[in-house]
Design a binder for these strands. Structure first.
Lengths: 290, 290
DNA sequence: TATCTCACATGCAAAAATGCATGCATGAAA
DNA sequence: TTTCATGCATGCATTTTTGCATGTGAGATA
């Protein structure tokens, strides 16, 4: 009959995670604690909320109902925390950023250094991932994304346009120049697993040699001389041992955006970071296009 | 960075109550605990939520914001708990009723006895008050009310119509009969502090002798011979030492309703109680009208 | 069949939250 | 002025909650 809201939150986490361990991880608790909170909630409500299965907890009908309501409470709480971050005008405390791994080294790190020098009391936490972290759930305050759409509830600024081209080792380039009709070996990205159409114009003899699901690995494969990779200009130029080859003429690629939830956008820390990021990318625009 | 939802709930309670003690009472906690939760919330959010004033806690702007969001979370939680009660099909556990004090003795108690005999595993908690308990907030499952409107989000059944009339002691009645033109002394209710208009037709010589804010006290005053009281038929008839007098002919009075929140309405316990209550009032309708 | 992993239950010790008693400040009443 | 009531802060003992270590059972793998 006592602490109820936190128990509801716990029920939601277990319903979402499917196991005690997953829920505990998300909540930052030990799974034992989660198990006991579920027990307590069930005792307090007088109903069973989960089926105990060998491979985890599955919500009962009632559990589902509770989880749904708790989910809307969760949205409210998220909205509140976002609003609080948004009106935070201090330049102290933590700022959570996320950016694609491959963009960070060459083009974000310098901004990070500037920022931390200018605002030494801000602790920057950088999540380097291609996953789209949920800015609604405050998984990050600010995201740098390579994408054609900034999002729905999000605000964004386009940092710069981008182009993609074909890159390979000098030896591969040499071979291509010597025998233009020899087949071109491609290493392609899982999400667009075909030879780019524009390549077919001048080099009709193409074939897919490998399909990768990770761009960093593709860079490595290209560096090892396994074939040609279509990648953003900035990446090919920043990868030692690779050079642009004329198989694929420079073509439009998804732009680079900085986005944040509209609630969080006005926060001083977020604004301060944007204020460094935007001119930096404007200045280095030439790295991204031919 | 840990337990947050319960702290939000606490912030809401303090913002509503104005003092730690009031919030603690509502939450069923010691006020010390409430104070510490507020501290914790302020530390976690890094902002001040309340002004510490000599006469209590007053929310800051941010505190207000937090309280508002927490209020909508609270509504969600209430909705959830109501939904859970509504789908509870057991005839065990607690059932919370509320009814006007004066109606309980003569006309609700017999139903209570029937009910507890039929369903011995249900623990009935009766809140005897004229306050309109908030059925949205689950202050009661089921309410018996004397009112012209069942409410907005509530469902209701009209148990019976009612009439009011004038009552006094036999000696007062005697005096009236002997000298019809002598002034009639009224004890009136604060909420309609005038002599009923219908009384003026046959007895033009009326005056307000006293104004009371409590109907039970008015019954007592009438029994002590202080004057004439307009009251519901059932009450006058059930009060020893009082008799109906012809000053005020029977006139319509607010009906008696049984109401519950629409979410809670289908609960087995609520339904079982209604199923006894409705026929009982139908059978005793004659007590309420002339 | 033996072994490994995963998910969970349970007992116990550490950590945290809670309640109580006491003391202080303010404003109202005697 | 003194006294009382209200509202809150703080120190300390108790209760509750939490985390860790260990053990169990189901299913996959060798």
């Amino acid at each position: 009959m006592k602490a109820e809201w936190d128990d509801l939150k716990t029920v939601l986490a277990v319903a979402r995670g499917g196991t005690l361990a997953a829920a505990a991880k998300r909540l930052g608790l030990n799974y034992t604690t989660v198990a006991r909170r579920i027990q307590r909630a069930e005792a307090a409500l007088g109903v069973s909320l989960f089926h105990r299965l060998p491979d985890g907890y599955r919500a009962t009908d009632v559990g589902q109902l509770v989880a749904e309501r708790a989910a809307t409470m969760d949205q409210q709480a998220d909205g509140l925390f976002r609003a609080l971050r948004g009106r935070d005008q201090t330049l102290r405390g933590r700022l959570v950023l996320t950016a694609p791994q491959l963009l960070i080294g060459p083009h974000v790190a310098p901004v990070l250094e500037q920022f931390s020098t200018l605002h030494p009391d801000v602790e920057v936490l950088l999540r380097a991932t291609n996953d789209l972290l949920d800015l609604n759930r405050r998984e990050a305050d600010l995201a740098i994304r390579i994408s054609r759409t900034p999002g729905d509830t999000l605000l964004g600024l386009r940092l710069c346009e981008q182009q993609a081209a074909s890159f390979a080792t000098p030896s591969v380039a040499e071979r291509l120049k010597d025998s233009p009709n020899a087949p071109v070996d491609w290493i392609v990205y899982e999400q667009s697993p075909n030879v780019p159409k524009a390549a077919l114009e001048h080099f009709p003899n193409n074939r897919v040699r490998m399909v990768f699901d990770d761009m960093a690995a593709m860079v490595g494969a290209a560096q090892a001389g396994l074939g040609v990779v279509r990648m953003p200009m900035f990446l090919g130029r920043a990868s030692v041992g690779l050079q642009q080859i004329p198989v694929l003429p420079p073509q439009p690629y998804a732009d680079i955006w900085v986005v944040a939830h509209r609630d969080v956008w006005p926060s001083a820390k977020v604004k301060a970071f944007r204020d460094l990021l935007v001119p930096w990318f404007k200045a280095s625009e030439c790295c991204f296009v031919a």
